[in-house]
């Protein structure tokens, strides 16, 4: 199959088919609704942040979108669980730089772990927002943006 293996890797396809942490958290300490108005992707991210340690104890999402946006959100929830809010924000910045092509994970230091799977997005400017919606929404939740966030 000549299809773009760089972008649609098995892990991404797997998270698309079986998204992890795909549920709402009742009485979540933080949550946010995020949309991509250009394509209609629509997700809600839920978090429970431990007030003492500032760590993310629980993280989940619900919504609809393309494989890239679904897999990106699903992987984000598995990757950030147990990490500190500060760390999550730093990883968001690095992730964003990577998908815009401003951070080369093969040459520069980073804390992205398995999230480097999404590095191929930089070749497709029209898809960067699919991958970044989850992270914008996460930050919206942490910043208590009750009106939701948008990629535009």
């Amino acid at each position: 199959m000549s299809y773009d293996k760089e972008l649609y890797q098995q892990v991404i396809l797997d998270h698309n088919r079986k998204p992890r942490n795909f549920r709402a958290i009742e009485n979540a300490s933080h949550s946010c609704h995020g949309v991509n108005p250009l394509c209609g992707d629509d997700i809600t991210v839920y978090l429970n942040v431990n007030e003492d340690g500032g760590t993310i104890d629980e993280l989940s999402f619900q919504g609809s979108g393309c494989a890239i946006s679904k897999a990106s959100t699903s992987l984000m929830t598995t990757f950030l669980k147990g990490r500190s809010v500060e760390e999550a924000r730093r990883i968001k910045e690095e992730f964003h730089k990577m998908i815009l092509g401003n951070l080369d994970p093969e040459k520069e230091e980073h804390h992205l772990g398995k999230l480097v799977l999404f590095a191929g997005i930089r070749e497709y400017p029209s898809r960067t927002k699919c991958a970044s919606l989850a992270w914008h929404t996460l930050v919206g939740a942490l910043d208590k943006k009750f009106d939701g966030v948008s990629t535009e």
């Binding site: 299809y3 394509c39 393309c66 890239i68 946006s69 679904k70 898809r127």
Partner: peptide, 8 residues
């Protein structure tokens, strides 16, 4: 999803 479809 249609965005994956048009990409392919």
């Amino acid at each position: 999803h249609s965005h994956d479809m048009v990409h392919f």
